[in-house]
Each structure stands twice: as C-alpha cells, then as structure tokens.
C-alpha cells in the first residue's frame, strides 16, 4: 500500500465506523426496549424508528456549544477530541476480513490494548478541566477502575495469543480454523468471560459504570459538556464498545471464519451478537459498589486470569 492509498483506506474506515456507531445507538435502544418489554424508538422513521440516530445527531449539532467560564478552556476542548481519536485509533489494527486490515503488524494485539488504555486520559482531562466536583470525582473513579481492570483485561487477552502463538490478529484468526477459542475446554470460556467483564469495566458500562453513576454523580465526567462535545464522548464510548465487540469476535469466536458467507458478513454477525450480549448484561444487573467492584477485580478476576494464563501456557508447551 502506498501512503496515499492507506490514507484513503483510513478515511473510508473512519466514515464506516462513524456510520456503524451511529446506528449502534439505535440497536442499543431498540434491544434495550425489547429487554424491558418496550418497543424502543418508533415514531421517527416509522415503523421502527430507523431515522432516530440521525434526528439525535441533528439535535446535538444544533445545540449551543457551551464552555463554562471557570473551566480550563484548552483542556476542556481537548478532552472530547482525545477520547474520540483514541477510540477510533484502535480500529486501525483490527482485521475486518482475513486480508483487510489497515495496519498489519506483528504486535496488533499489543497495540490495540495500548491505545485502549489511553482513553482514560481523555476522561481525566474532561473531569479535571470541567472544574466541577462531580466531574472530578467521576474522573478519579474512572481512573482507579480502568487502571485496576487493565490487569485482568490484558491477562485474559493473552490467552488467545498464547493459544495461537502470536500477537498478530491474522495468525490468531487462522489458528481458530479448527475450532473457536471460546470452545477450548475451560481455558477458553474463562478467558472469554473475564475479558468481556474487564472490557465492560474498561468501557465504563453497566454494571461497572461507577464514573457515570447518575444517582451519585449526576452525569459523571461529562456533566459540563453539551451539544457536539457531549456527542463526541458518546461517539468515543460507542466506538470503544464496537471495537471491544469486534475484538471478542476475533479473539474468541473465530472472527471472519465461517461457512458459506463471506468473511465480512461473519464478523459483522458475530460482532452484533457480542454487542447484544453486552446489552443483555447491561440490563440484567445493578451497578456495583466501588468496593465490590475492586474486590471483584483483585480477588476474583486477577487470580483467575493469572491461573488461566498459566494453564494455557502449560497446555501449549506440553502439547507442542
């Protein structure tokens, strides 16, 4: 690929992701509705409200762009940009079919997780620059949570890498030709579930959405944001969630592999299923308390993933 070619591919990917993320909000609202026996958005774009995301986007665009007076102007405006950029950057390393990946390097997995860990800085900046006690508290919570859950996230992420013997996404996909890693006895299931939980915590989703706990912190770190800047945070959150869903489908569900249909269709299907599972978890559980969350992390997930990784390593080295 030449330089100009890769730039244009990147632009196409970016546009596609933003489009998909916009409609993920619709999927989320529709599916959340069904989980609660409601029907979700309906009237805008009858009969299923399929114009709702566009209406929402227009509404957010037309809102006044407020920067409160006592904020740190530069950082306040930087934070949403940071979050969006870092969330979208990870997609560069994700293969969407077996051959189509923007940046194909040996260390794709490492890069992806490295960039995922940068999002928290944006949350931090937002919380601090807002000059608001709720926002600051929320940012501190988010930071503590994300730093803590980074450990089980990476440890469970490494299990597929160890099983495949590579950090390259393509090698990981091709290693699953016989069977998906989620079907790998015990080790696969444990790492899949722990990865999903840790990723939920990393993305501040329910049941780990302590940094957005409405009952305590009003709205969390984005309390002072409105209009398009708020939409940026939303975009970043959903892009991250989409990336995590794609990652789960690649690492544990075989990604683009599957009979009959082409790779892109399979990965889209698997990603959608993972996304719906995330929503299912979201509407089934209450928000954990902060000490419960930390206890779950340090006393359950970290030892579990560590032992799991050890077992996976032993398995691979013994069966070689």
């Amino acid at each position: 690929m030449t330089f100009a070619e890769s730039v244009s591919h990147g632009a196409i990917l970016l546009g596609a992701i933003i489009g998909v993320v916009t409609y993920l909000t619709w999927v989320e609202r529709k599916f959340s509705g069904r989980l609660q026996s409601r029907i979700g958005p309906y009237l805008v774009g009858r009969p299923h409200g399929w114009l709702q995301p566009i209406a929402d986007a227009l509404k957010l665009l037309s809102k006044e762009d407020i920067t409160p007076t006592k904020t740190d102007r530069f950082l306040f405006n930087l934070a949403p940009i940071w979050v969006v950029v870092m969330s979208l950057l990870g997609f560069a390393f994700l293969p969407l079919t077996i051959n189509w990946v923007l940046v194909n390097i040996d260390l794709g997995l490492l890069y992806f997780s490295a960039i995922g860990s940068l999002i928290v800085i944006g949350v931090f900046i937002a919380g601090w620059a807002s000059n608001n006690k709720y926002a600051l508290l929320s940012a501190l919570r988010a930071a503590a949570q994300i730093v803590a859950y980074e450990v089980p996230l990476l440890l469970s992420l490494l299990v597929p890498a160890v099983l495949a013997g590579s950090l390259n996404f393509q090698d990981i996909i091709l290693a699953q030709e016989k069977y998906w890693f989620i079907l790998f006895p015990v080790v696969g299931q444990i790492s899949g579930i722990t990865f999903l939980l840790a990723a939920l915590a990393e993305g501040n989703r329910i049941p780990f959405d302590l940094s957005e706990a409405e009952s305590e912190l009003v709205a969390g770190f984005n309390i002072e944001y409105s209009g398009m800047k708020f939409a940026y945070f939303y975009l970043g959150e959903y892009a991250h969630l989409l990336a995590v869903s794609i990652l789960v489908s690649i690492l544990f569900l075989g990604g683009p592999l599957g009979p009959l249909l082409s790779g892109g269709v399979w990965i889209a299907l698997k990603t959608l299923i993972v996304f719906l599972i995330v929503l299912w978890i979201r509407w089934s559980f209450l928000r954990l308390r902060i000490d419960q969350m930390m206890m779950l992390n340090w006393k359950v997930l970290v030892p579990l993933t560590l032992g799991n990784l050890l077992v996976a390593g032993l398995w691979v080295s013994l069966s070689r």
């Binding site: 490492l110 490295a114 800085i121 601090w128 930071a143 994300i146």
Partner: peptide
C-alpha cells in the same frame, strides 16, 4: 502501553 498509558495515568492521578 507503559509510558503514555501507564506512567502518564499515574502522574495525572497523583496530580489530581
């Protein structure tokens, strides 16, 4: 992973 992700997060955490 370590510097931009870890160290900076810790620095910011300490500042806050």
């Amino acid at each position: 992973l370590l510097y931009a992700g870890g160290v900076i997060t810790l620095i910011v955490f300490v500042i806050l």
